[in-house]
């Protein structure tokens, strides 16, 4: 018996009221593989993410991480199993400095977060700085997180997500709201780290340049169903995918402006 893939999702389904946001979706992500999850607005990407992250309990289906069942386990347990994530609307700890953000994540990852003594700002300083250096934030380590430009907030998020030494990294629209130059930079950074540390990455993205530049494989969701899956070139030529995107008005043309979020599925 060969080792199971890093992430296996089988038959995931979740309905909101009568609407099937995610309907019988199955896929897998291997260690070190970069997989993009795309689809028009309202396709169910964020719901799918929240199911894998354990935030949502699926109506049906299972989520396995290296063969271990983490279905609906909740974000904290999913984290301990090795799932890190970034958010569509970046979420950092506004009342801390950049470094403290990462230190908090490191403390949590090392089981020290319940310790009510000792200085939190001395926890794993060097490791925090190393992670900040990885994501290009070392120079800003002592700045208040609340003062950062949005692009830097996204970088900080990446550093936080990496602090738990994840095996699987979920990134929900990692470049949304960023300036074009920053976007490419961030994606490059993330992918480089992932490849180096053999982290599997599943990300959603509106920016097709980013998707086609970095993804090893692309999954396409439409109205909750997985309509295509495969290498970028295959997906690009897929008729069903083209049809799905026609309605959205975003045919695989490279888009450069910032995209609004995906409110229905967030």
């Amino acid at each position: 018996m060969s080792a199971p893939p890093l992430l296996t999702a089988t038959g995931l389904a979740r309905a909101w009221g009568g609407v099937r946001a995610v309907d019988d979706v199955s896929f897998s992500v291997a260690a070190g593989e970069i997989v993009a999850l795309i689809g028009p607005n309202g396709a169910g990407k964020s719901t799918c993410f929240n199911l894998i992250n354990g935030q949502l309990q699926p109506d049906a289906g299972r989520v396995l991480l290296s063969g271990r069942d983490i279905t609906g386990a909740g974000p904290a347990r999913a984290f301990r199993a090795g799932v890190g994530r970034t958010f569509q609307i970046a979420a950092t700890f506004a009342s801390m400095t950049v470094r403290e953000n990462v230190q908090t994540a490191l403390a949590a990852g090392r089981g020290q977060i319940m310790r009510p003594w000792g200085a939190g700002r001395n926890v794993a300083r060097d490791d925090a700085m190393r992670l900040l250096a990885l994501s290009g934030m070392a120079a800003q380590a002592e700045r208040p997180a609340a003062e950062l430009a949005y692009g830097d907030v996204k970088r900080l998020e990446l550093a936080i997500a990496l602090a738990g030494a994840p095996r699987l990294l979920l990134m929900d629209e990692p470049t949304a709201g960023m300036a074009p130059a920053d976007r490419a930079d961030l994606m490059r950074t993330a992918v480089a780290v992932a490849r180096k540390q053999n982290i599997g990455v599943l990300f959603t993205e509106h920016d097709m340049d980013a998707v086609f530049a970095h993804a090893d494989r692309i999954l396409v969701l439409d109205r909750g169903r997985l309509i295509a899956s495969g290498a970028p070139a295959d997906v690009r030529d897929n008729a069903a995918v083209r049809a799905a995107y026609l309605g959205d008005g975003v045919l695989f043309a490279a888009t450069s402006g910032p995209h609004p979020g995906d409110p229905k599925s967030s």
């Binding site: 974000p75 301990r80 958010f87 979420a91 009342s95 801390m96 908090t104 990852g109 936080i160």
Partner: peptide, 11 residues
């Protein structure tokens, strides 16, 4: 500050 973020790092 961010309950979602905290949960996703295992807090």
């Amino acid at each position: 500050d961010e309950a979602r973020r905290a949960a996703s790092i295992g807090v």
